[in-house]
């Protein structure tokens, strides 16, 4: 059980969004200084930002990071702001068959039946639960690529078009992918899809282009309840480290030994 006393719930909780401490302290400090310096000339329209962006990512050292995400299921309100933001930030096709992240709703009935749905990934809201009085438990679960340490998708890619970066993010090389879809078959989580226009595998990148600029992934940025927590997996003072210390963690489908780096707190047994 979560030590509620130890975890400052509700009040004063540090979510990456509000604290603005996206990656780690060093990056955060640098970021604030940069932002402070950059802000005023920007306001006057003197400096164009792309130059600053390039400058920011130039100082990024992938070997100093190792990313993961925490998801507190009991905090998810199913608003799907994350899904919407992800589609915008990453140009994910709008059709309801392509998602880097999506929200599932679980409805567990007293007789043991489990009903799951995710209409349009949760983007358009969820229809009312049928027979609402006859519900044992019901909750939302955000899903995304687990950025496994032992990813089957990377293992099966015949040409090396999908890979783990040094900072632990699983990416797809759009210019090298041959579109054989083996990685989609190999992913146990349904986290990959075939991009309808690019004809290559598409997936969550942990918003890698944001990470290198010291920002958190878009879904984490817009999560209003702090259900998603992002940061370094290993022992640094980041929100994720705190999340991992104060919660009992679970991962999805642990029996497959994919070693996911998306850690769930308060996950129900029926989620898979």
């Amino acid at each position: 059980m979560t030590p509620d006393g130890a975890r400052p719930s509700g009040s004063g909780e540090v979510t990456p969004a509000q604290g603005g401490s996206p990656v780690d302290r060093r990056a955060f400090l640098g970021h604030v200084i940069e932002a402070a310096c950059a802000g005023s000339p920007l306001l006057l329209g003197v400096v164009k930002l792309p130059a600053l962006v390039a400058q920011e990512s130039g100082g990024y050292d992938a070997t100093e990071h190792f990313y993961g995400m925490g998801v507190d299921v009991t905090k998810c309100i199913g608003c799907a702001r994350c899904v919407a933001a992800c589609k915008i930030e990453n140009d994910v096709p709008e059709e309801p068959y392509f998602f880097n992240t999506w929200i599932e709703r679980y409805v567990l009935r007293p007789d043991g039946r489990v009903e799951v749905d995710s209409p349009n990934g949760g983007l358009d809201g969820f229809p009312p639960i049928e027979d609402e009085g006859n519900v044992l438990r019901t909750f939302f679960v955000p899903k995304l690529c687990n950025h496994c340490e032992n990813p089957p998708c990377v293992q099966v890619c015949p040409v090396g078009a999908t890979f783990i970066t040094e900072d632990g993010v699983v990416l797809v090389d759009e210019e090298y992918c041959i579109g054989c879809r083996y990685c989609i078959q190999a992913c146990p989580y349904g986290a990959r899809y075939m991009h309808p226009d690019k004809r290559v595998a598409g997936k969550c990148t942990f918003c890698y282009h944001r990470l290198v600029k010291g920002k958190v992934p878009a879904c984490v940025e817009v999560c209003p309840t702090g259900a998603r927590v992002f940061g370094e997996v290993e022992g640094r003072a980041t929100p994720l480290a705190q999340f991992m210390r104060f919660n009992d963690l679970q991962v999805l489908k642990p029996n497959l030994n994919t070693r996911p780096k998306v850690y769930y707190a308060n996950l129900d047994v029926e989620v898979r």
Partner: peptide, 27 residues
């Protein structure tokens, strides 16, 4: 850096950001 095209990481990292983040707004 591994069995992949290292340049791909750079081109992914160079994608444009759309959500600025709260810290930018605070400026």
């Amino acid at each position: 850096r591994g069995h992949y095209r290292a340049a791909a990481v750079d081109s992914i990292a160079a994608q444009p950001v759309k959500f600025a983040g709260r810290a930018e707004c605070a400026v």
